[in-house]
Design a protein around this nucleic acid. Structure first.
Lengths: 228, 228, 228, 228
DNA sequence: GATGAATGAGGGTTCATTCAT
DNA sequence: TATGAATGAACCCTCATTCAT
């Protein structure tokens, strides 16, 4: 925001404040692009080292920026972390019972697969969340009511199945927590799986299809349901 | 420069060049007592804030010591953390198939209960371990071979059951990981359970007996076994 | 934990992504100027108090910087000391037998004068080196092979003189060490000379010309050579 | 001075405060013996690491004592260092012109040999002194007047020789400084000699007899004197 | 916007010295 | 005297953040 060294237009490529001439608000685009790079870098670093363990220096380097440059875009490490966490949590929601599925077995199988997909596709996000929980969850303020309501919806569906005799009685909350735990495990504890179940080559010990199949079977059996 | 050993007292009992014969001098025990206090404080802090997030200051304060006083007892933060981790991992092992149990259902039920007991009784230890995994597990050197062999033993037992037709075919490694995930979850994600499944008072939403019962039932069903 | 590189600027000239064409931006030179100030300050402090006795605080203060500011420019006390030592040793070499001199007496006289010049002009460098020797010379790794080869060259020249009957037989290595000792003495033991040989005013007891003359005469006589 | 844990005499070997019964003041002897051990340890450490680089811990360990034990015998690191320095400097004096020697060549040869003997026999003392000089000589208060007078005596003798035509004119102070430098060099710069003049085995490159002979010859020649 | 430089706070660790027993 | 423990000062270094250009 401070004045540039030379305020008169130079001969080099002009600064991007020529708004109306070239496309719609190019600097807005640029800012968004840079922000996206920063977000990606921050997710990687926070996932690997946690909030306190991550230095702004590390984020800046990974994003290809200098430290002051980074601070131009973000308001501060902790605030940025909070925003980032909020935003990744928003994208985590999924529909428990999509309209095209009706049978409990299909819905649960779909749910397990969706959760596993997230764990396999976005393990960093999962790890950031787990770290946040371990840290006390102080940055999850608005998340809890949403999550609570969202889970309650699922619980209601399951309890409906139980009431209709489609499933034996069980604690629906615990069932959902169990599914959460088993799926998230493939993101957070990937290291342990490699070390304990792997063949020593460092390759992931289970491929995704196997995991989906085994876990679906296990959950459906555990709920007294038979696979479709 | 030349590293010079500190005058830190060693762990072995000091040579009691016994001058007096009136029982063990009380201050001889002081070192062990202080070490126990430090360990407890460190477990609490490391569990809450992780290795990098924990300051020796915080450990010292929680233990009622000054920072240099703490360094009189420990050799350095990282080294102390590594020792601590090693020692808490030692106490984690349990017997998968105790001699007095023979039926798969009993063995699995016993296993689930034991894992849950650990999660409920020592949640801080569980959290330290989870953090260590998320951080890359660089301090778990000697743990992996042991854990690997130990799990392999359990896997062999389960595969024996499957071979004898006592259980439907399934991936034994994944089964054990699932049990691990669901039990450990009650330590690491206690916060989430309170927020999402609780009644809003902050009280734990499930009592231990309920959890043990529900989880046992779920696992046994998932393994095609009926409860005793 | 994972070591993360600092954002310290490197020594190479930064990429001048030249925006303005009005000469070299003055602040581009600032880094070199500051580094020169730091080097001077560090030489003074290390010379006075040695590696362990010098605090980064002291270097920073003498250089007119704060302590963290100093660490913005250097990588660490010991590493910086090692680099500094290396670099000052580089500038120490001199030619023993320059082409325009042929007679042993001239060569030796020239050598004595050159050594004395260094002792009088850079006593701090000499003191740093002496301290390093006393400390065990652990930072002189690459220096020894060079110095050894370099001295061997001089020894060969002297032995050639002896073989040709220009000088009486003597141990050339010891002769060179003696010259080294006597010249270096005027840097390292300047204090002793003032206290013991001075007139009590604190002024240096010998002027350089006297020292050069007396020492040259002494060495040449000691080698059985007459002055030109 | 504080009371012992149990003041009544125990069954073990009684503490040495039985004064009158066994020999003359045994505890005085013991104190002297301990002090001698401490002095030896301190000389070794100070010689190797300097005043600031030496920890009381290191001295205590080398002396076989604990740190508080050491502090019972000494008044403080710096004060003890000052006393130690003073006392070792006292033992350094030697007679320049013993009565049985009259000829300048003999006196100088004797002086060179005596200085070299000290350098070879007590290199640690020499190094401590050199460090002290480099540090500014603040602990040498009473030494300078003595040394000055002592050297002045030697200078007078030499000037007498010159006046009587036994030696060519030269600056006697500088001559003595040169001898000092060349002899002390064999203590302070032993490392450099090994590295530069040695055969690579780490063995000292010159034996004492060679050094004495070469240096004596060099000095006598340099003074225009022929060997006896 | 982008860069080199600066700053204040804090973190881990060592050490000389002293206390209590 | 001798020992374990304590203390306060200092030291090296890192980091988030800001300033000036």
């Amino acid at each position: 925001m401070t004045a540039r060294p030379n305020d008169r237009p130079s001969d080099d490529t002009p600064p991007d404040n020529g708004r109306a001439t070239r496309g719609p608000r190019p600097e807005r685009q640029s800012r968004k692009r840079v922000m996206a790079v920063i977000r990606e870098a921050a997710i990687a670093e926070f996932s690997l080292h946690g909030l306190k363990g991550t230095s702004t220096q590390a984020i800046a380097e990974r994003a290809g920026l200098t430290k002051p440059q980074l601070h131009y875009y973000i308001s501060g490490k902790e605030a940025f972390y909070a925003e980032l966490l909020q935003s990744v949590m928003m994208a985590w929601k999924l529909e428990f019972a999509p309209a095209h599925l009706t049978r409990p077995a299909d819905i649960l199988a779909n749910y397990v697969r969706a959760k596993l997909d997230h764990a396999f596709d976005h393990p960093e996000v999962s790890r950031i969340f787990t770290r946040e929980i371990l840290d006390g969850g102080h940055n999850l303020g608005h998340y809890w009511p949403n999550a609570r309501a969202w889970v309650q919806g699922e619980v209601d569906v399951i309890n409906g199945w139980i009431a209709r005799g489609l499933m034996p009685p069980m604690n629906a909350h615990l069932l959902l927590m169990n599914i959460w735990a088993m799926t998230q495990h493939h993101a957070d504890f990937a290291l342990q799986m490699r070390e304990i179940c792997g063949d020593g080559t460092g390759a992931p010990p289970f491929d995704r299809a196997t995991v989906v199949h085994e876990l679906t079977t296990f959950v459906l059996r555990g709920c007294g349901l038979s696979h479709s």
